[in-house]
């Protein structure tokens, strides 16, 4: 049995070496709080692997497995199949992966699991770069953001993970943010009940990688939604519900000025970024509106 050295009130220990103001740390706790201990968690290498533990000590109270960076969804399929073979239909198989492990290297195995309709709860916490290896750009890094492999700012826009998931016709897809916890937890509970794969794409600011003040993590998360850089919605059995209710978008600069990764933007780039965000927001909203009817 798991030996309890330091008790915690949730399923995750309180002292974990995540950076100051880590968005992921908030997200993983809230996700686990919305579940119970009938969960098997799969964590690939990345920041979330800090929760896997080190040597004989772990920071999670549920059974877990740290597989390879790109095979979390395939591993989850294997576990689901084994549980099914043993007659277990109640345990939740939870994948907890970063954006790199999801939209870059893990996209193939994720697509495979989606297509097979394997019942897994896949959470992608998106901090918009490879943070654990030192802030390298991923295909989730937004336009113009500086990372260590896009030091002059990223020249292309990001991938749209949720649309990729929806294209697989899976039962449940949703986005959520670190600042709206009630919404996030409601979605975790729905996702768990889905009759097949469920994807939760959760916005998780990273003060270290974004070069922002750790105290501003939640504020930045809120601003991402208010400026139209992030849209919260859910897709349930073919129908979309838009959760982000923003009457008038705030200027993107209110969001970017808090983050060092956008510090070097030229005046032209600032204009271009505003245009990109606005047009992407409008196009996405139009699409989502259409899908909500």
């Amino acid at each position: 049995m798991l030996e309890i050295k330091d008790e915690a009130r949730g399923l995750i220990s309180h002292g974990v070496s995540a950076c100051h103001g880590c968005g992921l740390e908030i997200v993983i706790r809230k996700v686990m709080d919305a579940l119970d201990d009938d969960v098997i968690i799969l964590i690939p290498p990345g920041c979330a692997a800090l929760f896997s533990g080190y040597c004989k000590e772990t920071n999670v109270k549920v059974p877990g497995y740290q597989g390879n960076l790109e095979n979390t969804a395939a591993s989850a399929s294997g576990i689901r199949a084994a549980l099914k073979a043993k007659g277990n239909d109640h345990t939740t198989v939870l994948c907890f992966c970063g954006d790199g492990a999801t939209v870059d290297i893990g996209l193939q195995s994720l697509s495979g699991a989606f297509e097979r309709n394997d019942k897994i709860l896949y959470v992608c916490y998106d901090n918009e770069a490879y943070m654990n290896t030192g802030i390298q750009g991923s295909s989730s890094t937004p336009l113009f953001a500086a990372t260590t492999t896009t030091p002059g700012g990223k020249k292309v826009r990001r991938k749209d993970l949720t649309q990729i998931a929806i294209a697989h016709n899976i039962p449940y897809v949703a986005t959520a943010s670190a600042h709206n916890i009630a919404d996030l937890q409601k979605k975790v509970k729905k996702a768990r009940e889905a009759d097949g794969p469920a994807l939760l794409h959760i916005y998780a600011p990273c003060p270290t990688g974004w070069r922002s003040n750790p105290a501003k993590t939640i504020e930045i998360s809120r601003l991402a939604e208010q400026t139209g850089c992030w849209i919260n919605f859910e897709y349930e059995d073919g129908k979309v519900t838009i959760n982000s209710k923003v009457k008038e978008l705030k200027p993107v600069e209110e969001y970017t000025k808090l983050q060092g990764r956008f510090k070097a933007l030229t005046p032209e780039q600032k204009v271009a970024l505003q245009e990109e965000v606005t047009s992407n927001y409008n196009a996405t909203m139009k699409k989502l509106q259409f899908m909500s009817e």
Partner: peptide, 14 residues
């Protein structure tokens, strides 16, 4: 390689 001790780091020292 299994970890079977639920433990916590003293992050208060940071």
């Amino acid at each position: 390689p299994v970890a079977a001790i639920f433990a916590s780091a003293n992050t208060g020292s940071w």
